[in-house]
C-alpha cells in the first residue's frame, strides 16, 4: 500500500501577487516499511510535501493515495480525511511547542482520545508510548512545562506514537539536539522502523541520511530531482554547497581521487571506510 504521490502541484497564496509554487509535478512512491529521507534546501517544498501525506494540505492538482485514502482537490473538505491522521503520524519541527495538558500522560493521551479511544485505554497507550521514548513512570504525572527541552520533545513524539500510525513523518527530528540526544532519538526511530513502521524523515542533516536511511529523495524548487541511495546522492550533489556532504564521504572521495580503489557506495560510516582502507593496504 504505502503512499503514492501522482503528479501533484501546489501553490501558496494562489490569489496574491506573491504566489509561490511550492510543488510542481511531483510524483513519488513510498512502499510499506520504507526508511526514506526527503532532503532539499529551505523553500524547496519538502515540508509542503510532508503535509500532503496526512492531508494538512491538499494538492491543487494531482492525487496523493495513502492506503485507502485519496487526497485531492475534489475531496479536500471530506471529513473522512481526518481518519487518515490516525494512519499517518506527522511530527513537526520543534514539536515541544504543541504541549498543553496539565500532565505528561494526559498530553500524550490527548491525540489518542481524539480518535475515539476511551480515556482509560488512551492513558494505557500513553504509558506504553512514554516508556518507548525513554520516559519512565516518574514522568507520567509531571507537568510538561517543567521538563527540559529534550524531554518535552520526547513527550511530543510519544503523543504521536500513542496514536499508533503505520506511517511516521518526522520534520527535522534532531534539530537543536546535542549529539547524544540525537543518537538516542535516531535509534528510537530505527527501532520503530524495525517494528514495521514506514519512516519518512525530512532533514538537512546529511550525516543522519548517510547513517540511517536506505533511500533519499531530493527536492529542488518544488521538483524531485533525485531519488536513490544516500551514496548516489552524495555523488550527485558533489561540488555544490547547498547541502553538506558528510565528512566520511568527503574523505572517501578524496582518497579515490588520489587513486585508491574504493567503492563510495559501500561507505555509510567510519567503520566502512576503515574496512575499505584496510583492504586497500592489504592489497598494496
Amino acid at each position: 500500500m504505502g503512499i503514492q504521490v501522482k503528479n501533484i502541484f501546489f501553490t501558496y497564496q494562489k490569489k496574491a501577487t506573491n504566489a509561490t509554487q511550492a510543488l510542481a509535478d511531483v510524483s513519488l512512491e513510498i512502499k510499506d516499511n520504507d526508511f526514506l529521507a526527503i532532503v532539499g534546501e529551505t523553500g524547496s517544498g519538502k515540508s509542503t510535501l510532508a503535509q500532503m501525506f496526512n492531508a494538512l494540505l491538499v494538492p491543487d492538482k494531482g492525487d496523493v493515495l495513502v492506503n485507502d485514502y485519496v487526497i485531492n482537490y475534489k475531496n479536500r473538505k471530506s471529513r473522512k480525511l481526518r481518519g487518515l491522521r490516525q494512519r499517518v503520524g506527522l511530527v513537526f519541527q520543534f514539536p515541544e511547542y504543541q504541549l498543553f495538558e496539565e500532565t505528561v500522560e494526559k498530553d500524550v493521551a490527548f491525540g489518542v482520545k481524539n480518535f475515539g479511544v476511551k480515556a482509560e485505554e488512551a492513558i494505557e497507550r500513553a504509558h506504553v508510548a512514554l516508556k518507548q521514548v525513554g520516559l519512565d513512570e516518574s514522568y507520567f504525572k509531571r507537568a510538561p512545562f517543567d521538563l527540559s527541552g529534550g524531554e518535552k520533545r520526547k513527550v511530543a513524539i510519544a503523543g504521536i506514537l500513542a496514536i499508533n500510525p503505520d506511517i511516521l513523518v518526522f520534520d527535522e527530528p534532531t534539530a537543536g539536539f546535542d549529539p547524544q540526544s540525537s543518537k538516542d532519538l535516531m535509534n528510537l526511530i530505527t527501532e520503530l522502523h524495525n517494528n514495521g513502521k514506514t519512516i519518512i524523515i525530512i532533514t538537512h542533516d546529511m550525516d543522519l541520511v548517510n547513517t540511517y536511511t536506505k533511500r533519499v529523495v531530493m527536492l529542488e524548487r518544488g521538483q524531485v530531482t533525485f531519488d536513490g541511495t544516500p551514496n548516489e546522492l552524495f555523488a550527485y550533489i558533489k561540488g555544490y554547497d547547498r547541502l553538506d556532504t558528510p565528512s566520511v564521504i568527503k574523505v572517501a572521495e578524496k582518497l579515490k581521487e588520489k587513486g585508491m580503489g574504493i567503492n563510495i557506495n559501500e561507505i555509510h560510516n567510519n567503520n566502512d571506510l576503515v574496512e575499505a582502507i584496510k583492504k586497500w593496504r592489504n592489497k598494496a
Binding site: 565528512s247 566520511v248 568527503k250 574523505v251 578524496k254 582518497l255 588520489k258 585508491m260 567510519n270 567503520n271 571506510l273 576503515v274 582502507i277 584496510k278 593496504r281
Partner: peptide, 25 residues
C-alpha cells in the same frame, strides 16, 4: 577516524581532513 585507523596500523595526528587523507595515502 584517526583513532579507528590506529587499530589497523595507520598513524596520523592530522588536524583536518586534507592532512588526514595525505597521511592515509
Amino acid at each position: 577516524l584517526e583513532k579507528e585507523l590506529k587499530e589497523i596500523g595507520v598513524n596520523s595526528n592530522a588536524e583536518n581532513i586534507d592532512q588526514l587523507v595525505e597521511d592515509i595515502w
